[in-house]
């Protein structure tokens, strides 16, 4: 993402420091993650200290500071999915692709995320990959699903 586009987004929010979170969300929607150069540009334009931007970008759960892999795996870890065995599914997927929630693997193939409730409790445990919901997952089924992605 180039500086012109960043500036456009900032201008849309009248360059107000108070719009920091909205600006970062909007940038991330287009760029999928927040590289350091972007954060520096935002800091300069909004006149918000880098320290505060670092805190904001790591405090709010929506922000990502690493690039995303080709496939984003979302595993629901809501309480309902948890009591129905989501932890086993998460453990299995973690072992299989070698990363923890919030991380992207070295080949940039997968990004793993857990979420608090996808609202599909009747289908839990649930894995969502690229908008497709995989329902009632057992650890073994989860393995098979992930293996299909290249």
């Amino acid at each position: 993402m180039d500086n012109d586009r960043i500036d456009q987004i900032i201008d849309k929010h009248q360059g107000e420091a108070s719009s920091l979170i909205q600006v970062l969300l909007e940038i991330q929607r287009e760029n999928s993650w927040l590289p350091k150069e972007i954060l520096e540009r935002v800091s300069e334009k909004l006149q918000v200290s880098l320290a505060q931007i670092q805190h904001t970008a790591t405090f709010y759960k929506a922000f990502r500071l690493v690039p995303k892999g080709r496939h984003e795996i979302h595993i629901c870890n809501g309480t309902s999915c948890h009591v129905r065995g989501a932890q086993g599914v998460i453990d299995t997927v973690q072992d299989l692709i070698g990363i923890r929630p919030g991380q992207t693997d070295l080949d940039s193939k997968f990004t793993l995320e857990t979420c608090n409730c996808l609202g599909r409790c009747a289908l839990g445990p649930v894995i969502e990959i690229e908008g497709k919901t995989h329902s009632k997952m057992s650890p073994a089924e989860a393995k098979d699903v992930i293996k299909k992605y290249e």
Partner: peptide
């Protein structure tokens, strides 16, 4: 519509309002 940045603590009222002002929640 105000899109929140995510985080359970934002459900607390002073945290919610701080975050709407662009601050740390």
């Amino acid at each position: 519509v105000y899109i929140d940045g995510g985080g359970y603590v934002l459900g607390e009222s002073s945290s919610l309002m701080a975050s709407m002002e662009g601050k740390i929640g």
